[in-house]
Nucleic acid binder design. Structure first.
Length: 568
DNA sequence: GCCGTTTTCGGCCCGACTGTTTTCAGTCG
């Protein structure tokens, strides 16, 4: 409701940056990060939140009690959804939308289309034939890539990496980095931002605009250009001097709120921070600019990892020295969710999977084929016994690698698992996952998860929400109850590395971050040898979730881990 | 609308690009 209020206020105030709009958006951010239910908070408790004042606290209370906010109702009358839709058109902002209504009586997209065809826009103040053309073009893009459309990370990441490689390969480019929400590792991306360091920007810009992926140029300048791919994904390239690279990546990585807080911090010290440098406000002398680390240090802060830069308290935590100890890829000592061709959907042989795990320097792995209840992909009991013999052979071949014989069980709609108790207890390691019946009510999902967590054979709950980013929402369940049960039984929760899963999602991880009694396992869920390298994504997701690495059980050395796994 | 280790009033992050203007408004990030 507050977000809608912010959006409507953009129209009312004629600016997306009006102070009132920004205040509402800040309040939205504060509430989004709450771990407790906002409905249960008093006005006084709400006001204690950073960014929520008396006015917003009152609105929240009224909304909780009556289900409506008068201000929103009035604004909805004035700006109905069909009118608000106009501002979703790229290049068309609140000022223009309101003027179109005042001057031409345009109330919705259809009327705008008619006015464009009749060439009525070009006679309006501040507009001309080109503006008309721009808006007409923006209208075409609305379906393909409106302001609200976000691209799933698994779609954007490979494009960004390839693009980055091409930019880095240009002879004039010293170094380059992808920034924006992709570097912060959000699960959906608005656009791809690339920053390049060069003393000679013109050829870099020219080469960028000529790349095969560029379908359309929507803006080009000396140091900044924006293009669209054929699928409508926007890519921005910014070229800065090498000495400015740190300031530029900091700025383009954001988030917006993080930048605002950093800049406020600069102002408090008599400095100013922009994409070129942290500099003295009076003399304009540079304080720091080459690296992000130098800028943070000048501002009295330790380096803040990109995954944390959401403007949700990371700067205060950094100042207080209370940031979590973040996991890194090299900390991970074992992979506890690995398939082979024994599973119907596995694509590398067991021998290859084990060899690849050993080659990566893993100290322990768990082979976890699908279980019998997963119709096509699961293993019968006989197959499980046969694979056990193969694993015994491989243990001899790889004496330094501990190979756990595991299974990925299916949590049924009633919480029951595959096989039977005796059979299950013979496994070294069990992952239990939801693979079906995604549309039950939340209470039923909570019950089935609690049942699986309570089962003595289960070590970890696999991809707990079952969501597929951009395709399928996760199951809804009572997170607090699941965390309580996981802590009670010492059952871990998985952080699945697949880019289309990232499950648990980082927002749920953040809600769990104060639960230091809960363990997590970062698993690749590999079905092919090359998927081991997906580990990096699970690591980034855990970092984004503010999870302290001491709670991630597969960072532990082999002895500690095996002792815990056997006990659990 | 929010906020305060100079402030309870008067500030609030900063700049590129476009299209329209002769110095700026709108949009965007």
């Amino acid at each position: 409701m507050l977000q809608e209020l912010a959006d409507l206020m953009k129209l009312e105030e004629g600016s997306p940056q009006s102070f009132r709009v920004r205040a509402y958006e800040k309040a939205v951010g504060a509430i989004r990060e709450l771990t407790s239910d906002v409905a249960g908070m008093t006005a006084r408790e709400l006001e204690a939140l950073d960014g929520v004042g008396a006015s917003t606290a009152k609105k929240i209370r009224v909304y909780v009690e009556t289900g409506t906010i008068e201000r929103v109702e009035k604004l909805r009358q004035k700006y109905p959804p069909s009118f608000v839709q106009l501002t979703k058109i790229p290049g068309l902002g609140p000022k223009t939308a309101v003027m179109l209504r005042d001057r031409l009586g345009i109330e919705d997209v259809e009327q705008l289309r008619a006015a464009l065809e009749a060439e009525k826009l070009r006679d309006l103040p501040g507009m001309g034939a080109k503006s008309e053309e721009k808006i007409a073009h923006g209208l075409e893009r609305l379906g393909l890539h409106g302001k609200d459309r976000r691209t799933p990370i698994q779609e954007a990441m490979p494009i960004a990496r390839e693009l980055l490689a091409e930019v880095e390969a240009l002879p004039q480019v010293r170094r380059a980095e992808y920034c924006g929400s992709l570097r912060r590792f959000r699960e959906t991306i608005g656009d791809i931002d690339i920053v390049a360091a060069s003393t000679d920007p013109a050829p870099v810009m020219a080469a960028f605009l000529e790349l095969p992926i560029v379908h359309e140029v929507i803006g080009q300048g000396d140091t900044k250009s924006s293009v669209l791919t054929a699928s409508g994904l926007q890519i921005d390239l910014r070229v800065v001097a090498p000495s400015e690279f740190g300031a530029a990546t900091l700025y383009f990585t954001g988030s917006k709120q993080h930048n605002i807080e950093l800049r406020q911090r600069a102002i408090d010290r008599g400095w100013t921070l922009n994409e070129y440098a942290l500099a003295d406000a009076e003399t304009e002398e540079t304080v720091a600019s080459r690296t992000e680390k130098a800028i943070y240090e000048a501002l009295g802060l330790p380096f803040i990892a990109p995954e944390l830069r959401e403007g949700i308290g990371e700067i205060a935590a950094a100042e207080a020295g209370s940031l979590p100890r973040l996991v890194e890829e090299k900390d991970i000592k074992g992979d506890l969710h690995v398939h082979s061709t024994w599973s119907g959907d596995g694509r590398s042989s067991l021998d290859d999977m084990v060899r690849a795990g050993a080659d990566r320097g893993l100290q322990y792995i768990a082979i976890t084929e699908h279980a019998e209840n997963l119709a096509i992909n699961g293993l019968s009991r006989d197959e499980v016994r046969s694979e056990a013999n193969e694993i015994a052979r491989l243990r001899n071949e790889y004496p330094d690698l501990t190979i756990l014989h595991g299974s990925e069980l299916n949590i049924g709609p009633d919480g029951t698992l595959d096989y039977d108790m005796d059979f299950l207890m013979a496994f070294d390691w069990c992952v239990a996952s939801v693979h079906s019946h995604f549309d039950l009510p939340a209470a039923a999902h909570t019950e089935r998860l609690l049942a699986a967590i309570a089962h003595p054979a289960v070590n970890v709950i696999g991809h707990p929400t079952g969501r597929m980013i951009g395709r399928r929402p996760g199951i809804d369940f009572d997170l607090a109850a699941v965390l309580d049960a996981a802590a009670e039984t010492d059952t871990a929760l998985e952080i699945n590395c697949h880019l289309d899963r990232l499950d648990l999602p980082s927002d749920l991880l953040r809600q769990a971050r104060e639960r230091t009694d809960v363990k997590f396992i970062i698993s690749t869920d590999s079905h092919h040898t090359r998927e081991y390298r997906h580990l990096q994504w699970g690591v980034k997701n855990a970092r984004r979730g503010w999870i302290d690495k001491r709670q991630i059980a597969n960072t532990w050395p082999k002895r500690k881990f095996l002792k815990w796994a056997a006990r659990a």
